[in-house]
């Protein structure tokens, strides 16, 4: 039942493409991002990598319109309506002793105007059960969020990103705290969603996963260090000196790099 529900709501190629034009961001006088020019195509898996503190999360939050950035971000959807964004935040920072169960959390996120303490409606209940099944959440929905393992909590977070069915999925390090079975399930799910035409932005750490699944990879350290297909970008580097090199290149010839990255977009399509 749950799978058929998922299929019904999945038309093809509905994700938006995203264009960044000269995107920059300053917070508290510190330059976090600068001169980012990118074209991210619709319905593809775009991985974002880069050193910690290099501005990946800020970049994504700028794309989502939550940062006072400069420059332009355009999301161009083939369909007329606004893209439905599913967002998996990096961490759910909350008091672990709070009496909030999995189903309470899903109610807070997805239940609209009906307060979480009044329980779930019939329709949300089915949607939520379906989403939890898709991410392979098997524990009891009446377990407190705080007593779940890291992997299970991550699954719950992923499940909320699937309600309502997104056309743009933004994943901020989805494999954090994830167990092996969960990673496999996630990768499968990401692949299927992309095949359904969902645009996926994925901040990733594991370069093997990037090689295997991404359509494009973008390394961000203040600005775009490189951008292109994983085969082109990753194979010439070995993972050990990737980020070291990334920092050096970003400082010395960033304008050069951004222009070449623009052309690699064209080639890889």
């Amino acid at each position: 039942m749950t799978q058929s529900a998922a299929k019904q709501t999945a038309p093809t190629s509905r994700g938006p493409s995203i264009h960044c034009i000269d995107l920059g961001l300053q917070l508290g006088g510190v330059e976090i991002l600068r001169a980012i020019n990118l074209k991210l195509e619709a319905g593809k898996i775009h991985c974002i990598i880069g050193p910690n503190g290099g501005g990946k999360t800020c970049f994504i939050r700028s794309l989502l319109g939550q940062m006072p950035h400069t420059g332009m971000v355009e999301t161009i959807s083939l369909q007329d309506d606004e893209p439905v964004i599913g967002y998996l935040p990096q961490l759910l920072d909350f008091d672990k002793t709070l009496p909030v169960t999995v189903s309470d959390f899903m109610a807070i996120v997805c239940n609209g105007l009906r307060p979480a303490f009044a329980g779930l409606g019939q329709q949300p209940r089915q949607l939520i059960a379906a989403a939890l099944e898709r991410v392979g959440f098997v524990a009891n929905v009446n377990t407190r969020l705080g007593s779940l393992s890291g992997g299970e909590r991550q699954r719950v977070l992923f499940a909320q990103a699937l309600i309502p069915e997104p056309s743009l999925l933004v994943l901020d390090e989805p494999m954090n705290n994830m167990d092996q079975a969960g990673e496999k399930r996630y990768l499968e799910l990401i692949k299927n969603l992309a095949a359904d035409g969902v645009t996926i932005l994925w901040i990733a750490h594991d370069l093997n996963q990037v090689r295997q699944y991404a359509d494009t990879v973008t390394c961000i350290n203040q600005t775009v260090v490189f951008h292109g297909s994983p085969a082109e970008c990753l194979d010439q580097l070995n993972t050990g000196d990737l980020f070291h090199l990334a920092t050096k290149r970003a400082i010395t010839k960033d304008s050069d790099v951004t222009t070449t990255s623009g052309s690699t977009v064209g080639e890889s399509t």
Partner: peptide, 8 residues
């Protein structure tokens, strides 16, 4: 309590 409903 361990749920929102019981809590409220």
């Amino acid at each position: 309590t361990s749920s929102m409903r019981g809590f409220v």
